[in-house]
Structures are given as structure tokens and as C-alpha cells.
């Protein structure tokens, strides 16, 4: 079956009722998408299908025929968001992180805190209490000012 995976057209043979999550992990060898619950509650398996965040554990493979599927491995142009997760404590154990970042990427470039909370309500994190995740997304949304790097050094004095 043909679909677009991380920007490239691919043809993958798998059972049409196989979970998209398993197709990605087992047939496409993209293990960045994680399984946390298998029941659509935790969001660790979040991927983008035609730009929308979905739980890959709930999507049968047949449903992505002809669609654009984006996983953490193919998240292009969002490096700043990913870097912000490292810098601001958005990732601890890291297992929810790929899904969290993919879901955050679907929020657009400048979400406010309410947008973030609503948009990520389907992504569970047990480590951070979400605060570090909010800080990371907010930091990535703000244009980088040259003064910021000096600020970190100035603190040391």
C-alpha cells in the first residue's frame, strides 16, 4: 500500500488491519513512535496524518492509504522545538517525548499556554508535571533574540 512517510512515497506490504503503530515500528523500522497504552489514552504513539495529530495505536493501516504520515524521525524544520525540549526540561525519561513533540508541532508556530494545555491533553507525561514541556514549547514559539545567550553567561558573574 502506498502512502507518504516523512516526505517520501513508500509502498509497504502489511495487513490492512495492522495498527499503524506496528507498521511504523516493525515494517518501516521507525521506532521513535512509542507504545504507552495501546488504548489511545497516553499519546506516546502520536504521529501526524495529513498534518493532524493522531494516536497511531488506534489507526488501522488501511486508513493511511494515500495519506501523508509524519513521525518524530521526519519532523523537519522543528529543530528549535526539539532543542527547546532538551534545554527547558521538556524531556526526562523520554518515552512520551516523541509523541509530545509531534503533538506540539501540530499546534502551529505560536500557541499560547491555553492552546498548549488543550492540545496536549491527550499526551501523558509521568515525569515532568508538564511544566518543563510548556516552557519548552513557549520558548520555541518566541523568536530567538541575540541577547538571550549573553543572559545565561551574565548570570554566572
Amino acid at each position: 500500500m502506498r502512502f507518504t512517510l516523512n516526505g517520501r512515497t513508500v509502498d509497504v506490504r502489511a495487513h490492512p488491519m495492522k495498527r499503524l503503530l506496528d507498521v511504523l515500528r516493525e515494517d518501516c523500522h521507525l521506532t521513535g513512535t512509542k507504545e504507552g497504552c495501546g488504548e489511545g489514552e497516553c499519546g506516546a504513539c502520536t504521529v501526524l496524518v495529513d498534518g493532524e495529530a493522531v494516536n497511531a495505536c488506534l489507526v488501522p493501516f488501511a486508513q493511511v492509504r494515500g495519506a501523508r504520515v509524519t513521525t518524530i524521525e521526519g519532523l523537519r524544520g522543528r529543530r528549535r522545538l526539539q532543542e527547546a525540549f532538551v534545554e527547558h526540561g521538556g524531556a526526562q525519561c523520554g518515552i512520551c517525548t516523541p509523541g509530545m513533540i509531534v503533538a506540539a508541532a501540530a499546534l502551529g508556530r505560536r500557541p499560547n499556554l491555553d492552546d498548549i494545555k488543550t492540545g496536549l491533553a491527550g499526551n501523558l507525561c509521568r515525569c515532568t508535571g508538564y511544566s518543563g514541556i510548556y516552557r519548552a514549547i513557549e520558548a520555541a514559539a518566541v523568536p530567538l533574540r541575540p541577547a538571550r545567550r549573553r543572559g545565561a553567561r551574565g548570570k554566572r558573574r
Binding site: 521506532t31 521513535g32 513521525t71 526539539q82 532543542e83 532538551v86 534545554e87
Partner: peptide, 29 residues
Amino acid sequence: TRATAVVGHPVRRKDGLDKVTGAARYIDD
């Protein structure tokens, strides 16, 4: 010295990059 006295400073976490790119390998991977 600036490069080495990192206690008390928010250095970049060692496992950060792998975790945010999906490259980190967990048992099921």
C-alpha cells in the same frame, strides 16, 4: 574556569538529543 565548573549550571543533558529525535533505543526497540 568557565568550561569546567559546571555544578549549579543547566548544562545540556547527555541524553537530550537522542530523546527528542526518537533515536533513543528503549527495550521494545
